[in-house]
Design a protein around this nucleic acid. Structure first.
Lengths: 236, 236
DNA sequence: GGCACGCTTCGGCGCCCGCCGAAGCGTCCG
DNA sequence: CGGACGCTTCGGCGGGCGCCGAAGCGTGCC
């Protein structure tokens, strides 16, 4: 992958995200949901023609997928590979999000810090705590970074969590920005998150990446992993 | 990570590689070695002032690290995080490298396809074969993507391979472009490659990312993993 | 000590990209 | 059916970035 043509193509891929508007669009879509073109335009604070141009470019390049319903055009990240691209760029950029400047913003960033999704896996104090508890119980092994153990594979089966066969890593450590520690990502992380939503342990909040742990979820955290949700706080 | 400032910063990170010259520089440096500024200028087919400008920007952003020796300025990728950024962008870009157009180029691309390094881990038919053999012997588990097994951890210790504690994944699947199948990357992949070079199983070739499997290495492949190196061919 | 080499700084040129208002098209609600 | 809404296309404007030649500085070899 070191020919000039490769360099041209890599540059074209990077150029997709080398614009603040397109970057804002892709970061917004890391919540795993579909957004309309209008919502994305407002979120990125640009006019509709500008958003249309950017969205067309991102779809043509395979970073986003689109779906039309009537007069609405829905966009989402095209898949885990696209999400990982955005995540890796965000991780390299590093640094914590800026300090909240209003009570409402502080409450919202507190909620995001406590429990949210990062494209398709759990993040925030929830994600980091679940990862820590699984490691403590021998379900994950972090001697050489993060890896799934056979006990972990059995636990997943026993809990009814199905991991789709995938080309990507079973477990990947995704650096949690608010907690500054890694949380579980990859195929196993995605399966766990999907199951948590399906089983009703978590539910999404409107218009935000934050998720709410339900009473059923608190019980599941306690019974399955020995975690008391009330004690879980984001890092300062 | 969804504030406008975050989007600006992510765009700035992506912009680092959104230029064919800088992309060519970083792809060249994926061989894990240090190159001089002049070598990188020639490799990227630009004049020295152009290369200097690009290198300054990449160093300032933390993607490259520099070291001066007399009148020479040496550059290398700043670390595994930087390498992963380039790899993930290259993977998303996808597609095989272009067909070789000369006998010499065909021989060189054949050597690259057979055995090379991808920043800090094994790639090519060697990388994919080693990954397959480790999976067949229960040292890696690919039921849910790639993961290290306890038997694998013990095998590493028994073979004298030390995996440095790291924040990154123990094993990560890096899609091999020439073989179109994943090979072992991550902390374990890096440790394996480092050990293979230290133990004399592999040796680097001048001016290329290709590596040569030594007689000692052929024996080690056979004794440790049951692989006959003579039988290993790149995919067509 | 002089000359060559590696690299840097300066100044200028040309091209590309992101932005929006206006106009238009398709959908859908009252 | 008419008007509002979501989104697209067209045309134009302004800013930013990558390139190089010339000149210069520091290193090092003969």
């Amino acid at each position: 992958m070191d020919t000039p043509l490769s360099a041209r193509r890599l540059a074209d891929t990077a150029a997709l995200l080398a614009d603040p508007t397109r970057a804002a669009i892709c970061l917004a879509l890391l919540d795993g949901r579909a957004w309309t073109a209008g919502e994305l335009a407002r979120h990125a604070a640009v006019a509709a023609p500008t958003a249309t141009g950017h969205l067309n470019r991102l779809v043509a390049a395979g970073l986003l997928a689109e779906e039309r319903q009537g007069r609405h055009r829905y966009l989402r990240l095209a898949g885990p590979t696209a999400a990982e691209l955005v995540e890796v760029l965000a991780q390299f950029t590093g640094g914590p999000p800026p300090v909240a400047t209003s009570l409402r913003a502080a409450r919202q960033s507190g909620e995001l810090a406590r429990a949210r999704t990062c494209y398709d896996h759990l993040a925030g104090a929830l994600g980091v705590t679940v990862t820590g508890a699984m490691t403590a119980r021998g379900l994950l092994d972090d001697r050489h970074g993060l890896a799934l153990t056979p006990a972990g594979a059995d636990w997943l089966t026993a809990t009814g969590i199905t991991v789709a066969p995938a080309r990507r890593a079973a477990v990947r450590a995704c650096l949690d920005f608010t907690e500054r520690r890694p949380h579980l990502a990859g195929a196993v992380g995605a399966a766990l998150c999907a199951h948590a939503l399906t089983a009703g342990w978590l539910e999404r909040r409107p218009d935000t990446r934050a998720v709410r742990v339900t009473v059923t979820g608190e019980r599941a955290l306690h019974d399955l992993l020995g975690v008391r949700w009330a004690d879980v706080r984001p890092a300062q």
